[in-house]
Design a protein around this nucleic acid. Sequence first.
DNA 1: TAGTGGTCTAGACCACTAG
DNA 2: TAGTGGTCTAGACCACTAT
Lengths: 241, 241
Amino acid sequence: MGEPIYITIVEDIKQQINYGTLKPGDMISSENLLCDMYKVSRMTVRKSLTVLATEGYIYSVPGKGNFVKEPNQDKYILYFNEMDSIEGSIEETQLLDVNIIKPNLETIFNLQIPKSKRVVVVRRLMYIDEVPVAYDIKYIPYYRGMPIVEKEIHYATFPEIVAKKKSLFAIKKELTIKVQKSNEDITNNLKLNNNDWVMTIEQKLLDELNQPIGWGVTYFLGEYFQLQAVSSFIDKSNNIY
Amino acid sequence: MGEPIYITIVEDIKQQINYGTLKPGDMISSENLLCDMYKVSRMTVRKSLTVLATEGYIYSVPGKGNFVKEPNQDKYILYFNEMDSIEGSIEETQLLDVNIIKPNLETIFNLQIPKSKRVVVVRRLMYIDEVPVAYDIKYIPYYRGMPIVEKEIHYATFPEIVAKKKSLFAIKKELTIKVQKSNEDITNNLKLNNNDWVMTIEQKLLDELNQPIGWGVTYFLGEYFQLQAVSSFIDKSNNIY
DNA sequence: TAGTGGTCTAGACCACTAG
DNA sequence: TAGTGGTCTAGACCACTAT
């Protein structure tokens, strides 16, 4: 035993939900009733309900009660990192070049910058068994005094490159995953046949004000690419209603 | 104002973390010190720390203190559902057939069943603008008395098909995302050219004891397929150390 | 031994909902 | 008006860590 009371309550209620005794939409016993049932104080009951809420099992409606939530079946946790989300992990990374360019329309759009603003472009090639398996291009708005140190960029992931000063906590990221026919640039770098398909992962980095601070694309050889995701009921906002 | 005190404390500390005043590994002020600083009771301070912990900002070590966590940069939230994770959404679903078969090796492995066990196979085709854009095969262990009602299967997602009786909360899911060259079966159903590539999403459904209760693959035409994911610091286990 | 976090109590006042 | 959840207090005892 030794298990805290509040955990016991959590597991009791979870079981009722998992086995269908309590169904989505059902109201669970009121906090005062649970206090009586378990002979505990209200704060202890509320601790249990908080756990259930953050794990996505219930939500509460002030003045009414706590209710079983409709599980979000479509929500998954995905782990991705362009440096090791590949089968067998990258063995070698080649820094092709680092340039400062005038952005094209796509880059202007994705970085939300004026067209006069210069952009740093970093291009890398990743190898497994001497075979190029991924081709990576990143765009970062250039600012004066920006340190462009090749050694640092060589092995770094995107957030590490961009967030020299900012806390990594402040960075939001958006991924877009798709397949596309390779263009000439990709074909040359990944040594493909024309019209071969590549897995494409687009990364957009945003700061705390949702301003883009970096944009990049990684093209993966299909044979070497795979992502895993697992279901998740966790819910950031505890008080959805 | 009207904002609860504990939210104020949460945001104060978040800001210190976001702006780098507090760095990963740093210990934050002790609970008693925070009580003094904000002139509140310990339970209020602890409520704030609980929020910060579930949002992945801090972790606590009993007897020592609360510490700023190293943000997990590689964690994303992904939304997927084979029925509408496609650009423009599926307009029509065609149920090709429902069969009861002897499982092949792959199916035996994925469903963890004896080879004598029969398996229900459901095959569907999804259309947009009369074009087949996805080909979907699902395998479910057959049990006596299983209702195989075509109408129900027609538009249902995988968990809905499998979990007739179980609470959907009890189901865990694993996704595998990859690209592969299409085989003859896929080529025929999606009207592809030989050696075209398809986006492949494998779904495995597990019950509360991690026993497989369903396995399926959906093949998507690359042109029509795209997934989005956003970064997440949320952490289910509040007490990682 | 002093300090830390983990659990828990028995109250309190508030805003909201419902009959 | 009675019941609900949301916030908050001022204590308590415990196990653990450090010195």
